[in-house]
Nucleic acid binder design. Sequence first.
DNA 1: CAGTGGTCTAGACCACGTG
DNA 2: ACGTGGTCTAGACCACTGT
Lengths: 261, 261
Amino acid sequence: MNSNPATTTPTSGAGATEVAPASSPTFSPLYQQIKALITQGLESGEWKPGEIIPSEVELAARYKVSQGTVRKAIDELAADNLLVRRQGKGTFVATHNEDRVQFRFLRLLPDDGDVHPHVSRLLECKRLRAPAEIARQLDLKPADPVVLIKRLLQFDGETTVFDEIWLPGAVFRGLTAERLAEYKGPLYAMFETEFGTRMIRATEKVRAIAADPSVAELLNVAEGFPLLSVERVSYTYGDRPVEVRRGWYVTTGYYYQNDLS
Amino acid sequence: MNSNPATTTPTSGAGATEVAPASSPTFSPLYQQIKALITQGLESGEWKPGEIIPSEVELAARYKVSQGTVRKAIDELAADNLLVRRQGKGTFVATHNEDRVQFRFLRLLPDDGDVHPHVSRLLECKRLRAPAEIARQLDLKPADPVVLIKRLLQFDGETTVFDEIWLPGAVFRGLTAERLAEYKGPLYAMFETEFGTRMIRATEKVRAIAADPSVAELLNVAEGFPLLSVERVSYTYGDRPVEVRRGWYVTTGYYYQNDLS
DNA sequence: CAGTGGTCTAGACCACGTG
DNA sequence: ACGTGGTCTAGACCACTGT
């Protein structure tokens, strides 16, 4: 269990009977090791999104640690949005499917606060060789195959967002315009259920830019109109980048919401 | 200690000897009550920003609970950035002064990733009666006194940000242009040390807009130039709003950073 | 009722920082 | 050497959800 350099033998540490925290350089707490083991189970597909994972008592037995240690590991994984606790029921693998919190990755809200469902209009879905910049961001070799998706989002009938989405071709083998068109629900839900790739976190760079002619036409605004430019890189398990997304947002009647805390 | 409706008498609950969790409607965990008590101490000024608070053992004794319960309360307060734990030293009240993480509230970063210190240029600081919209956001009565600060931020010599900052006059009594000019360091550090008001969290609404003539001149850009408009409302203890800030950002060579997790 | 996560306690030992 | 927070355990009971 304990993979620290100094300790492999159970000692009398911490009132424990099975394992003991190491007492030397590069000390790693037991619960972090458990956290890594559970993450491994998620990544390997042992427990799939939406499914329940073994109870705390079971995991404690499996890993030969106390329930409290498993609890702390799960606590952190839940804080990272990898797991979801439900009292009385169990602990579940987080999913983009039934989470009513799908707005974790879409920060554009209407000024009047109402909840308008949005509609996606697919423009294009093609495969090509990665441009240098995209390859760099996706951690691919230049000219590796990638998928490029272009789409519009309409909020309440108004065309508000234009997206260019770049995905590694190797991971998204078999992704076609047809399958995209068929699928109902959020893109990330599809990626998760159809391609086994779950988006964990993302970083965004936001800028104000002037609409160029092509984008202006798509979004029904004048050339030079101020748009929000949003460059997103999304990561999956192990902090591996698996999506680069460039969005152009019309922010009249809508705003990009952010909470600093 | 326990303020639940059903329980005031110590029972034999949870292996405890002093208190017990309630067993009825509107149940509130002990550690949350402790959390509230500690927050109260912060708000009342018993422990000031930068100071150390009593050790976990001391607090446990004071509140007649176990150290583990105090620990959980402090854990959450640390997660909320109200406290800072330092192993071997103690637990401290968070401060905007010596935190090297002052970029929690300034999300504008240069494209090249370098760390350019920014310089503030005060344009104006006057007192007036709150416009209706500002009064609403600050939870004041219309025409209540407010302070309005206008300033520019220069990054590496370039004028990049224009800010209009609205503060409740009652709280910021004695805030003048002179005192602002004197003070070195972040604005929030000054608010904290000089006016006893600590900013805890904020929400921002970001939009792309065209520069109007007056702002264009201040920022050295053409009229109509795309700017990032950032509307911030900041809150202090008890989620009371104490600042409304409107910022205009030039995002050429800079971007607004956001992390979705 | 049994099983799950949630709370609480008590006590041990470890790692860190400072005398 | 001592005090601080950090980790780990063991065991009890509570709250919630299903059978």
